[in-house]
């Protein structure tokens, strides 16, 4: 543990991410005001002691909404990384193990997916499936599959060449068991690093989609959505845009730094693979 905290990136990233997670968890049980409750009397108020981050056009407390927004962001991050990890690792392992035709097919499909501009295609998918948080997560998650598939394949391929795998074979260990017992544990740290970075990317992607109205739907609070609503009131109530914007920047930066820090400590030799 000490090893991790001697790394500046990790320490800063960890602290920033922790703030986001704590805010989200806290919002589940307590927020200064009800995040969804409108109050016409208090609309478009600037920052004050009662409303530290001001209120929006319906008189909702911005701080409460920023806190609740963290929940959406974290859910999207978790679900998209889970989609990408589960399918990507499976495909990557298959690709590395079978090689030849299987590898060729999986990797060419990955190339194809990489060829699409991710956000544009996510917009396309969500407009076809209908705008909702679940569809946004699906759209982002699909683009994560090749990211993890490639990483898994690359690391697994070098692992299969290592002598401890040959030793296991010589000891009569089956291929499945080797995959489970030797290959998977040895790709865990690069996956963890990549997962953290993709988590940050997902937060940004969710914000973009919600900003365009294709992600989280009102009245559920989401940082991207809040930015969208703030647009109309930019000159009258700039705090409506500034604080959700800061939240996005904070969270993305935090998880990115965390990923960098993890890489520095877990895998100093690893070149960044995307």
């Amino acid at each position: 543990m000490k090893r991790f905290f001697s790394n500046l990136n990790f320490t800063v990233g960890f602290t920033m991410s922790l703030v986001v997670v704590l805010a989200a968890v806290l919002s589940l049980v307590w927020t200064p005001f009800d995040a969804d409750k409108m109050n016409a009397k208090n609309r478009l108020q600037g920052p004050s002691w009662t409303h530290p981050l001001g209120t929006d056009q319906y008189g909702r407390d911005t701080l409460s909404r920023v806190m609740t927004g963290a929940v959406s962001s974290i859910i999207v991050g978790l679900v998209t990384v889970a989609i990408g990890l589960s399918l990507g690792v499976l495909l990557g392992l298959a690709s590395a193990y079978f090689g030849k035709f299987v590898d060729e097919v999986i990797m060419r499909i990955s190339d194809l997916l990489f060829g699409f501009p991710a956000v544009l295609t996510a917009i396309l998918i969500t407009s076809i499936l209908g705008p909702s948080m679940i569809n946004a997560m699906l759209a982002i998650g699909i683009f994560y599959i090749p990211v993890f598939a490639r990483l898994t394949r690359a690391v697994a391929m070098t692992l299969w060449e290592r002598e401890f795998i040959t030793a296991a074979r010589a000891g009569g260990v089956g291929e499945w068991t080797i995959t489970w017992r030797h290959v998977l544990p040895n790709i865990l740290s690069p996956l963890l690093i990549q997962g953290t970075v993709q988590f940050a990317v997902a937060i940004l992607a969710e914000a973009s989609l919600s900003y365009l109205g294709l992600g989280t739907q009102p009245p559920t609070a989401s940082w991207g959505r809040m930015l969208n609503e703030a647009q109309t009131f930019m000159s009258r109530a700039p705090w409506m845009a500034i604080f959700p914007g800061l939240a996005i920047a904070w969270a993305v930066l935090g998880f990115n730094l965390l990923g960098d820090g993890l890489r520095d400590t877990l895998d100093p030799k690893m070149v960044r693979m995307r």
């Binding site: 401890f164 030793a167 010589a170 000891g171 009569g172 089956g174 040895n186």
Partner: peptide, 19 residues
């Protein structure tokens, strides 16, 4: 390269026996 860095010596040495 011939010993899995994530395994304890016990698991490494007994692996062929286990299989």
């Amino acid at each position: 390269s011939s010993l899995d860095p994530r395994m304890k010596v016990e698991a490494i040495v007994t692996e062929p026996l286990r299989a």
